Computed example of a mutant assay.
Amino acid sequence: MASAQLETTTAVETICSQSPIELEDMAVERLADLGILEIDFAIDRDTLRHAGFEHCLCDACAITDFEFLFQLPAFDRIPGQKIAVLSNITDGSVIFAVLNDGGDDIEIVRQDDMPSEIASFANAFMDVFLQLGDLAA
């Protein structure tokens, strides 16, 4: 019991010592983690097997706060893997959906956890789409 009280006291002291900006950053990170859980739970592995990677992700996005943006071209460094870019409609954050080598499961990966060359390429790709949209408007 004393150990639990000590842990609670330590957690409260840690939170109280944070600046408002740090607390906001913590809250945003927790919401992003909840979004990852939401899309991960929405992915139907049967749809993945029967209809494919993109269709599976589009179905999952349709019932969550995410939008399927695009699938990245294949990377030689990651043979056989498919990577899609998804955007959280609520906060605009970007996550990646990575098909495993067996083609039977999808891992949801935060942008910060992707290799930098893949994240940079995806950001450049999004910038091109935004510029094309601006030209069309």
Results as ranks from 00 to 15, higher is better:
A4S: 10
N123E: 13
V128L: 11
E117A: 05
V109K: 04
C58M: 13
A97K: 08
A74E: 11
E38K: 11
I78E: 06
P79A: 14
T9M: 09
E38I: 10
S116H: 11
E38L: 05
D104Q: 07
S17M: 08
E54V: 15
E117K: 02
T10D: 13
I95M: 07
L34D: 12
C16V: 14
P79K: 10
D112W: 02
D33A: 12
D134S: 07
I39Q: 01
M126G: 02
P20Y: 13
G133K: 09
M26L: 15
D91L: 06
G133P: 00
I83K: 00
F75M: 01
M1E: 11
D134M: 09
V12F: 11
I15E: 13
G133Y: 06
D59L: 08
E29F: 12
G133D: 01
R49Y: 06
D105F: 10
P73F: 14
A74V: 08
I39Y: 01
N100L: 03
A74T: 13
F125W: 13
V12T: 12
M126T: 13
F70W: 05
T47E: 04
I95S: 04
E29C: 07
I21W: 06
K82N: 08
R77Q: 07
A122Y: 05
I83T: 08
A84V: 05
S19W: 05
E24I: 14
V98Y: 03
Q81H: 04
P79L: 07
E24A: 14
E117I: 10
E38Q: 13
I83L: 02
D33N: 10
S87I: 10
L57R: 02
H50S: 10
A2W: 10
T64S: 09
T64C: 03
I106D: 00
D105G: 01
L34A: 14
E67Q: 14
E7S: 15
E107H: 08
D112Y: 04
M114H: 05
I43F: 01
E117Y: 10
E24Y: 12
G52H: 08
C56M: 08
D65C: 06
I63W: 06
G133V: 09
V85I: 09
F68E: 00
L69D: 05
T14K: 14
L23N: 09
V85W: 03
L23S: 12
D33Q: 14
T9Y: 15
S17A: 12
L6C: 05
D65Y: 07
A62Q: 03
T14Q: 14
A124F: 15
E117L: 05
L99T: 01
A136I: 08
A122I: 07
T8P: 00
E67T: 10
A136H: 04
I36Y: 09
E29K: 14
G52C: 06
A32Q: 15
D104A: 07
I89Y: 02
I21E: 10
P20K: 13
S19T: 15
D113P: 00
A136Q: 05
I83W: 03
D65Q: 08
L86E: 02
M26P: 00
R110P: 00
S116T: 15
A11D: 11
L37I: 14
R77S: 06
V12L: 12
D105V: 01
L99H: 00
I43T: 04
E13A: 15
C61G: 04
L57G: 00
F66H: 07
F70I: 05
E67S: 09
A60H: 02
